[in-house]
Design a protein around this nucleic acid. Structure first.
Lengths: 265, 265
DNA sequence: CCATCTTTGTGCACGCGTTCACAAAGACAT
DNA sequence: ATGTCTTTGTGAACGCGTGCACAAAGATGG
């Protein structure tokens, strides 16, 4: 999963495990699809397959919400859609502000998935005066000076940060000071927030790096090297460009200057 | 098999826990920042603070890589940058293809974080003939027909999917068939892939829904504390738009059609 | 009403990840 | 050298999440 949770002290909200909460949107999506096809009921097995999880896990997840299934039959699709929506708070209207209307911010503003589930983009905000008034996703971009006023007037409690990394903490501080208590951060920075404020992080570059790690492992599985069962699933490895030089400095301590091409964020 | 897994079961590649791998990019970013400021060494405490994690966790994470610290002093910044980069496979060049150059795809193509860490966008691909040849992020968009050829010629093993949900699985299948073994999926769908292929998912709407859940809890904390009554906790909630009708169907089973406004992805 | 069949809900065990707390290791001063 | 001080590296305990396996619940048919 592509999330990066930033410190949640095992909130264990009303007994619903965090891991379960993270899967509820997944179930909801699968159920919504079934609902559109007018499927009346679904078994845990079928729904689990659609959501890409284990059926036992799904049943346990639902058990935290209550006993909404019927043994021998399955779950009522419409009813479950409603229950999960309510549990996630999607029966409310959530006004959000989006700060930083660059390439990414504009793409997010145009993203249908936001508006479609009870989330309403209350305002697009950018610090660049040249952006002010420009129309993005059918909405006029407003200047960052008005951030506090916008949040207050619209009762916004969720903010999306899509600014450059350098501006993110500052924007975050202003959002929090203005009353925002949940932040979705796309900027590649670790945000500091006071207790009671939730931050979720989406970092594109980190996801790629994690993939690269596994990719490297798949490609260059060492010959003997305590390989568990199956050694390197495959041995294509024709794609290795750089030989990943110098394993021999494994015990060197001092920096020797041959730092590889790793760059700032 | 072939369920769209997002999590690695127990890959435990070479003894490095998945959770640790997911944090390495975080450490790397913090270290890179220190490196730019020419900071020679850093203690686990300082670095942990910069990365937003616990110092004990950081030390344990590093211990999986080896003993790269010096007791009483800390870690050599440059050396650690190199070690982590190597471990993550960032000392290699990773050509990637990006499929689906809509709003989001274009934004991703422009995102600097990709190119800056050993990832090279080998091609932008879109199924829309009208897009073919258009320049995005200084690169000509190529038609999906050439997908296999592009992957083969460039030795691409990592693909990014930013298509609409409906096209994602089909694109995924073609990517995998062409030899891609790692996929970063931005489409709101569960992808099915064969064993050996890694999929990571970034779902903007899911992240927001998780935030909404916590936000709802913060806002509507019930009076009598342990309101285990299973009845919806609906406290203050000045923002409630929809009355969340019919609480009385708590034991009703059949669908009654009053589905709330939850929409397709 | 009883038998059978399907599917849920969950007790339980296991493994991973996190955190604490401390001994060992090295730097540094004397 | 020796002592002190700092910081790492890690053993051990704990808690959470996952998956198995099965009893209970309800549907369905005779």
């Amino acid at each position: 999963m592509a999330t990066g949770r930033t410190h949640r002290p095992a909130t264990r909200s009303r007994g619903i495990p965090e891991a379960t909460v993270a899967r509820l949107p997944l179930y909801l999506r699968a159920l919504t699809a079934l609902s559109e096809r007018s499927v009346p009921t679904v078994s845990s097995e079928e729904l689990a397959a659609a959501a890409g999880v284990n059926s036992a896990k799904l049943r346990k997840d639902f058990s935290y919400l209550g006993s909404y299934g019927t043994r021998g039959v399955g779950y009522d699709v419409e009813y479950l859609v409603y229950q999960i929506s309510r549990e996630l708070g999607l029966t409310q209207d959530w006004p959000i502000v989006m700060v930083g209307i660059g390439n990414l911010g504009a793409a997010l503003a145009n993203y249908g998935g936001f508006a479609s589930r009870g989330f309403r983009v209350a305002a697009l905000i950018d610090a660049d005066p040249a952006m002010t008034g420009k129309s993005v996703a059918g909405m006029a971009v407003q200047h960052a000076d008005d951030l506090e006023k916008i949040i207050d007037e619209n009762g916004v409690s969720i903010g999306v940060i899509a600014t450059p990394a350098g501006a993110a903490q500052q924007v975050c501080d202003r959002l929090v000071a203005a009353g925002v208590t949940s932040i979705l951060n796309f900027a590649p920075t670790v945000l500091s927030v006071p207790d009671g404020v939730d931050v979720r992080k989406v970092d594109l570059s980190i996801e790629l790096q994690i993939l690269a790690f596994h990719e490297q492992r798949k490609a260059g599985e060492s010959p003997v090297d305590e390989a568990e069962g199956a050694v390197g699933v495959e041995g294509p490895a024709a794609k290795v460009t750089k030989p990943a030089a110098a394993k021999n400095n494994a015990d060197r301590k001092g920096p020797d200057g041959d730092v590889p091409a790793v760059m700032p964020a």
